[in-house]
Design a protein around this nucleic acid. Structure first.
Lengths: 335, 335
DNA sequence: CTGAAAGCGCTTACAG
DNA sequence: CTGAAAGCGCTTACAG
C-alpha cells in the first residue's frame, strides 16, 4: 500500500489536473466518461483514500455528530441508551457522518462544562440523548449549535426533539388491561422525574378517566428519588389486580417485590412495562410491554440534525414515534 | 456569540500576526507573557474556538480513534462491550482523542469490507474490541493502520493486544472452590468459541491437575454453537457440586436450568461466573465471580494505540490485566 | 520576541 | 471537457 496517495499524485501520473481528479472521484460533472474511469481505476490501484479532513477544511464541516448521554443513564443496569447509541451510530454512518459519544458527567452537567468536541469544533451538531438539566440545555442552546433532543423534551416549543409516543403508548396498554376486566390498576413511577414518565402517567390517567375507573392515591407508586435512584416499592394491601410500570426495569423489580410478598404474576397481579428492553425477557413471566421503535427514532433524529446542520433555520418541533404493544405472559384475563 | 472567529481575526484586532496568536493559544514559546495573556483574553471574549480540522490538515492526523465491535457481541443481552466502549470513550477524551464506534456487521465481516472511517482517513488507528475472524484481521493488518486488539488475541506474536487475565482468573476461582472442599467441578463453555474461553478453561484445567482432582468428560459442558448462539445446557446426573462458568450470563442460565431440575444454588450446587456484569447481580443468589478491570484495560489499550499512532514501529505485545474475585452468595463451603 | 512565507489536500468559481 | 488560481485555518521552519 502506498503511503498517503493524494489526488495530485493521481493527477501527475495521468498528466491531468487535480481539479479533474476531484471531479472524477466525487462523481461531479465536467469529466469525460473515459477519463473518469481511468482516474477511478488508477485511484484504486494506487490505494487512494479520500481525505475527509481536507474537505472539512474547505467546507467548514466535520461530518461528525456529537451524541451526549448524561452519565446518570449509563449504569451497568442501564443498557437502554447504549442500545440507542448503536442504532444512532449505524444511521449516522449510512448518511456519511460519524458519531462521537460524550458521556456527560454529573459534575460537568452541574458546572455546565461544554464537551471538548464542541470547544474544538470537532462536530457539526449534537443529539442529546436523555433528559438534561434545564440550565445545561439553556446554555447549550445559546451557543447556537444545531441541536436535537432525543427521548425527551422540555417546554421550549421551538426545540427539535424526537420522542417515543409515551402518552398513547401507556393509554393503549391501560385500555388493554381494562378491556381484560381489570379495574384496580396502579401506576408505578415518579411523575416528577422525567417528562417521559409524566406523559406515561397521563396516558394511564386518560384511560382511567375515560372508562370511569376509580382512582386511588395508593395506586400511584413512587419508584425513584429525585436523583433517579430506585427506591423500595410500596405495594398497597390488598394489591390492585394490575400494575402499569413506567419502564421494564421497574416492572422487573415489582415482580420480585410481589413474589416476596407471596403474590404471583400474573395469577394474583398483572404487570405491564415499557421499553421492551433486556428486563422484559429477564422477568419471569416475560413482560407484556411497549416496544420503543429505536431504529425509527434514530433515523428521524439523525435526518433532523443533518437538516439543521445544512440549514440552521429549519425547525421540526416535536416528533413522536409510535411504539408497539408486545404481548407476553404477565397479564391475566379477568373476564 | 461571533460566528467563526479565527486566529487571524484575533491577530487583526491586536495588530499582531496569526503566528503569534497560534503560539499564544497553544502555550508554545516565543510570545511575551504580557502579549500571551492579552491574546488569550481576547480569544475568550470573542468566543474563539480552536479549529481541530485545520490542525489535522497540517499534521495529517485526525485525533480520532475507531473502535470496531463485531455485531455478534452487541445484542440486547450483551451490554458488556457497550460498557467497555464507555470506558474507552472516557479515556480517549482525556487524551484529547475522540472515539468513533463502528459496529461491524456479520456481512461486512464475511465480505471483508473495511469501515468507511478507514476509507475516508477519518481515524488515526483502530481498537478492535472483541474477536474477529482471522481473515478480517489479516486484511486489516495489511493496511498498515495502527491497530490494538482488546479483549482477545490471536497467534500472531507481534500483535498488540490487551486482555483480561483469563487464565489465572479462572485458576484462582477453581482453587477457591477446591479449597472449600469441592471435588466434582464442571466447566461450562465452548472452548473452541473464543481465545478467552479457551484460556479460562485452561486455568480451570491447571487447578484441577495441580490438585489431582479427577476429570470427567461429562464435566465439560458446552454453552454455545460456532456462531456464538447459546444452546441448552446439559447438566450431568447426578450434578457436580460446583460449576465454573466462562461468563456470568451463562451462569445465569445455568442457575435457571438447575432450578428447573430441582437443584438449588448454592445448597445443592455452587456456581461461579466471570465478568461481573449485569448478570452477576441479576442471578439469585448473586454470583461469586471475577471482575474484569475495564478501566485499566481501557487505559492500557488507549495509550497503546496512541503510542502506535505516534510511532508505528513501537510494539507492545500481549498485555494482560489482572481481574479480581468478587465474593457473593453462590458458593457453598463444603468443609 | 515577532512575523512573512509556504504548505497540508482538497474544492469552488471562473476562464478557456 | 479541462485546468490555473485562490482559499479553507492552522503550523512549521526560518529570518529578523
Amino acid at each position: 500500500m502506498e503511503q498517503n496517495v493524494t489526488m495530485r499524485d493521481i493527477a501527475f501520473k495521468l498528466g491531468v489536473s487535480s481539479v479533474t481528479v476531484s471531479k472524477a472521484i466525487n462523481g461531479k460533472e465536467g469529466v469525460s466518461h473515459e477519463l473518469r474511469e481511468k482516474i477511478k481505476g488508477l485511484a484504486t490501484e494506487m490505494g487512494y483514500r479520500f481525505n475527509t479532513t481536507a474537505r472539512s477544511m474547505k467546507e467548514g464541516l466535520s461530518y461528525n455528530i456529537g451524541v451526549i448521554i448524561p452519565e446518570r443513564f449509563t449504569g451497568v443496569t442501564q443498557a437502554f441508551y447504549m442500545q440507542f447509541y448503536q442504532a444512532l451510530a449505524k444511521v449516522m454512518d449510512e448518511h456519511g457522518y460519524s458519531g462521537i459519544m460524550h458521556i456527560l458527567s454529573v459534575d460537568d452537567e452541574e458546572q455546565r462544562v461544554l464537551p471538548r468536541v464542541y470547544l474544538e469544533k470537532k462536530v457539526d451538531g449534537f443529539i442529546i440523548l436523555g433528559q438534561l438539566s434545564r440550565e445545561y440545555i439553556d446554555m447549550f442552546v445559546k451557543t447556537d449549535t444545531p441541536l436535537v433532543f432525543l427521548d425527551f423534551y422540555n417546554d421550549q416549543p421551538d426545540a427539535d426533539c424526537v420522542i417515543t409516543d409515551n402518552f398513547y403508548g401507556v393509554y393503549d396498554l391501560t385500555n388493554y388491561l381494562i378491556q381484560l376486566g381489570h379495574r384496580k390498576i396502579a401506576f408505578v413511577g415518579n411523575v416528577r422525574a422525567t417528562s417521559s414518565i409524566l406523559d406515561r402517567y397521563l396516558g394511564y390517567y386518560k384511560s382511567m378517566l375515560e372508562h370511569g375507573v376509580e382512582m386511588n392515591e395508593e395506586y400511584l407508586i413512587n419508584d425513584r428519588d429525585e436523583k433517579g435512584h430506585y427506591v423500595e416499592l410500596v405495594v398497597p394491601e390488598p394489591p390492585p389486580t394490575a400494575f402499569v410500570c413506567n419502564c421494564d426495569q421497574v416492572a422487573y423489580h415489582l415482580v420480585s417485590t410481589l413474589r416476596e410478598k407471596g403474590y404471583s404474576v400474573p395469577e394474583d397481579c398483572s404487570v405491564v412495562g415499557f421499553d421492551n428492553d433486556i428486563f422484559a425477557t429477564l422477568t419471569q413471566p416475560n413482560l407484556t410491554t411497549m416496544e420503543v421503535n429505536m431504529t425509527e427514532m434514530a433515523k428521524t433524529s439523525v435526518s433532523m440534525i443533518i437538516k439543521k446542520i445544512k440549514n440552521r433555520k429549519i425547525g421540526h418541533g416535536r416528533i413522536s414515534v409510535k411504539a408497539k404493544i408486545i404481548y407476553r405472559d404477565s397479564v391475566k384475563d379477568l373476564r
